[in-house]
């Protein structure tokens, strides 16, 4: 599914990029095992048009309706949602921690902005992740070049705008190298 060649259908509106939705879940009762991550993640849909995006999205549960420790990832086709992927190795992500009530709406607004090319940072955006956790949920947007402050600033400002976040919500930037050192994402 990850490598499937997708084309816009007749009458469909093409996106700038093709994307894959991925899903990963940690089995209940099991501790985190970073080496198992790549085994537990799979592609659930691939799309290249607005209409295919909605089809894929509407067939998935909304984050607010999911249970347990899991993540939904939406990445450009060809980029794996892993720190070690070529596209991600010098990159980082903006992290926003959300009270659970806001997760579904924020995720939807984020992915619409991403596939609609609202971030205006060339091809810097790699993907987005929503992480369902015990007491809060976390939304992240990953970009290629952690050290490009012009890019990361613009992503942050667009994120704040599209998520309609109050000024009190803290956004944190984390380089993937730091996550690798910490052995944890958040």
């Amino acid at each position: 599914e990850m490598h499937r060649e997708v084309k816009p259908g007749s009458g469909e509106h093409p996106l700038q990029y093709s994307y894959c939705f991925w899903y990963s879940k940690r089995p209940p009762g099991r501790p985190a095992d970073p080496s198992a991550f790549e085994k537990n993640i799979r592609v659930v849909a691939t799309f290249i048009s607005v209409e295919q995006f909605w089809k894929a999205y509407s067939h998935m549960k909304r984050p607010g309706d999911l249970n347990g420790h899991c993540d939904i990832h939406l990445f450009k086709q060809g980029i794996k949602p892993l720190w070690e992927d070529e596209a991600n190795k010098d990159g980082g992500k903006w992290i926003v921690r959300l009270r659970k009530h806001f997760t579904s709406r924020c995720w939807e607004n984020l992915i619409m902005a991403m596939v609609g090319e609202q971030f205006m940072v060339g091809d810097e955006v790699c993907g987005a992740v929503v992480s369902l956790r015990f007491q809060e949920d976390i939304i992240s947007i990953w970009n290629k070049t952690a050290n490009n402050s012009q890019v990361t600033t613009r992503i942050r400002d667009t994120l704040r705008r599209v998520l309609n976040l109050p000024p009190t919500v803290i956004m944190e930037y984390k380089k993937h190298n730091q996550s690798i050192r910490d052995k944890t994402s958040f």
């Binding site: 009458g11 996106l15 607005v50 909605w54 509407s58 596939v115 599209v162």
Partner: peptide, 21 residues
């Protein structure tokens, strides 16, 4: 080059199309 950009309103309108179901 030119980028394909869609705003939120347009994406939501497309959601109602039969092609999106």
């Amino acid at each position: 080059g030119t980028r394909i950009i869609y705003d939120r309103l347009f994406l939501l309108k497309c959601r109602d199309s039969p092609l999106s179901k």
